Simulated assay, not measured.
Amino acid sequence: MLSTVTSKGQITIPKEIRSLLNIKPNDRVDFVIEGGRAILVPVKTLRDLRGTVAPREGSSFAGERETAKSAVAQRVREEME
């Protein structure tokens, strides 16, 4: 698929590509350069990932969050020793 670069350096991503990569208005994309090619990569945020992982059975969001905070704190303590 071809797209034209405007005088401002902008391009339109063809609808078929946007649909395939699930790119919506105001989404961010990254261009990765590999061997003389530019690869378009959608950038996902934490908000995009919200709700994709269910808490363990018998636990709550607050409990999972506390467990994660404790693990990070422990790693920081170990790195500082």
Results as ranks from 00 to 15, higher is better:
73 A>M: 08
16 E>R: 03
33 I>R: 12
52 T>A: 08
42 P>Y: 00
13 I>A: 01
31 F>T: 01
50 R>Y: 11
19 S>T: 06
58 G>H: 07
18 R>Q: 04
24 K>L: 06
46 L>D: 12
68 A>W: 06
69 K>P: 00
21 L>F: 08
68 A>R: 14
57 E>T: 12
70 S>H: 07
4 T>K: 13
78 E>C: 04
72 V>F: 08
54 A>H: 09
67 T>E: 15
69 K>R: 14
78 E>A: 11
25 P>F: 03
31 F>Y: 09
66 E>M: 09
38 A>Q: 09
41 V>H: 06
78 E>D: 14
8 K>W: 05
49 L>N: 07
27 D>F: 04
58 G>L: 01
8 K>N: 12
35 G>R: 14
30 D>K: 13
42 P>W: 01
45 T>N: 06
35 G>N: 15
31 F>P: 00
68 A>G: 06
11 I>T: 03
58 G>N: 07
5 V>Y: 02
14 P>V: 00
52 T>V: 12
55 P>D: 04
49 L>Y: 07
74 Q>S: 10
58 G>E: 04
43 V>W: 04
23 I>F: 05
18 R>T: 03
79 E>S: 14
51 G>S: 02
79 E>I: 12
4 T>F: 09
9 G>N: 06
14 P>A: 00
55 P>E: 05
63 G>T: 00
20 L>F: 08
40 L>N: 01
71 A>Y: 07
79 E>G: 13
18 R>Y: 01
1 M>I: 08
42 P>K: 05
73 A>N: 10
59 S>R: 15
45 T>E: 10
81 E>Q: 14
45 T>Y: 12
77 R>N: 08
58 G>W: 05
34 E>A: 09
15 K>G: 02
71 A>H: 07
73 A>I: 04
17 I>N: 00
26 N>L: 13
